[in-house]
Design a protein around this nucleic acid. Structure first.
Lengths: 244, 244
DNA sequence: GGCACCAATTTGTGATCACATATCTAGAAT
DNA sequence: ATTCTAGATATGTGATCACAAATTGGTGCC
């Protein structure tokens, strides 16, 4: 009769409002390169695609606006942020500084359990690279780096780093699956893995730096060059928002 | 009769919605240390204090949640984020990395016009320090650093740095006006100023690093020590939200 | 006196509506 | 055929309401 008390201690699954779900969904989508730079979206359109009312979408978008993923134009129109070449270099430099810090710290805190997990994520990354699966590669790449940085036990810094990932996510829709780039990238990842296994902080920092620099070089080749590839950002007419 | 066209070109003041105003107001308040760590707030209370409906406040809070200034607990209760000692050290390290980068870059891009502006902001900072005016000092301090970093022309990185400032803002309500600390801080600021005037990047980075490290030391003395000072965060009863 | 229990209030969340403005679509004039 | 214009539609913003969960305040029981 009075077993109404033993219930409260249940995990409570950390509170997951609809706005939170929409937020994570959109954020993951941005980081996985499912939105093109400059792409126009609408609150109502996203709400319909996600099967919710506009309200949770509004709140999720405000968060993503703060993170720099989306922007509201002067005329209050919603669009995916489009980074310039200079801004892309800023992100690169900031990433080198912050992720280098995290990589170095992670190397000194690695344990045997971490070795196994990191290696497993590395294998998944390799598989995505072999399959030339860009979205899959992006997800696996971020998962690989995130797991490493989590070992550094600096959630605040990791949060800032993830914000930068959100910024560069859309840029990757402009780059086609390039075997050469993927191979070079995997080379850097291999060096990151080795450095971590040897608990070599400076080497881990150097490898992460190379990885970031190389990704930036790859992106700089397609940014600030309004040649083609714009077909992705502006599909002529009917720019109905994506369902992703 | 057809003078409806010549109007559009008006400045349009860059679109300033009520949600934007509330956002800036709260953000400035947090950075100026007008909110205590852990302080409980309510959407309706803030809306009433700011003379708006709950709607703009909700959207502003979502942005500030993304920046880490406020948080919604498991039970969806709103409060000012309270950084632990470890998190404070993370912010310190990230600031050293990012602000050092910006300071070094600023030193190489300084012009005579910048010299005058920075000097002027330095004088304002000195005045606030002499008056032992903590809120005024905080505002002047951030304005001084922001102006310097703007010269580095890396808005993306500056945005990330300002996010860190938002995080440490509330901590400063716990620290009383300390003449010793303020004097030491002004010493670092003096060195920053000198380095910039001599266009000495490495020296500017070193001075900024010292400034950040010293501020962190100051804060670490009052964080993670639940002695008193909690009277500010929890005014016994009636924790009606502030009007600031 | 302390503690458990229940009613009243508070509060975040989601939904819906009204409105102003921007954008789009058609139609007409040249 | 092109361009300009006016009607129609689309869209972000702000306000209000309903609701469920949580907090609070008081009451009585041990």
């Amino acid at each position: 009769m009075k077993d109404t008390k033993p219930l409260p201690p249940l995990p409570s699954v950390a509170r997951d409002s609809m706005a939170d779900q929409v937020y994570r969904h959109l954020r993951d989508g941005v980081m996985a390169g499912r939105f093109a730079p400059g792409q126009r979206l609408t609150i109502r359109g996203l709400a319909e695609a996600l099967g919710s009312s506009p309200m949770p979408v509004r709140e999720a978008l405000r968060r993503l606006q703060a993170e720099g993923a989306f922007e509201f134009s002067d005329t209050a129109r919603l669009s995916v942020v489009q980074l310039s070449g200079a801004q892309l270099r800023d992100v690169r430099d900031a990433r080198v500084a912050l992720e280098g810090l995290l990589a170095e710290r992670a190397a000194s805190r690695m344990t045997g359990v971490d070795d196994a997990e990191i290696t497993q994520l590395y294998d998944r990354l390799q598989a995505a690279a072999d399959a030339l699966d860009v979205p899959g590669y992006l997800s696996a790449n971020f998962a690989f780096h995130r797991r490493i940085y989590e070992i550094a036990q600096a959630p605040i810094i990791l949060g800032a780093v993830e914000n930068f990932w959100v910024l560069i996510g859309p840029c990757f829709v402009l780059v086609a699956p390039d075997a050469t780039h993927l191979r070079r990238s995997m080379d850097a990842h291999r060096r990151i893995l080795d450095a971590l296994m040897h608990r070599d902080g400076p080497a881990a920092r150097a490898a992460v730096t190379d990885d970031i620099m190389q990704a930036a070089n790859c992106l700089s080749r397609v940014i600030d060059k309004p040649e083609k590839a714009r077909s992705v950002a502006a599909p002529k007419r009917r720019r109905r928002d994506v369902s992703a």
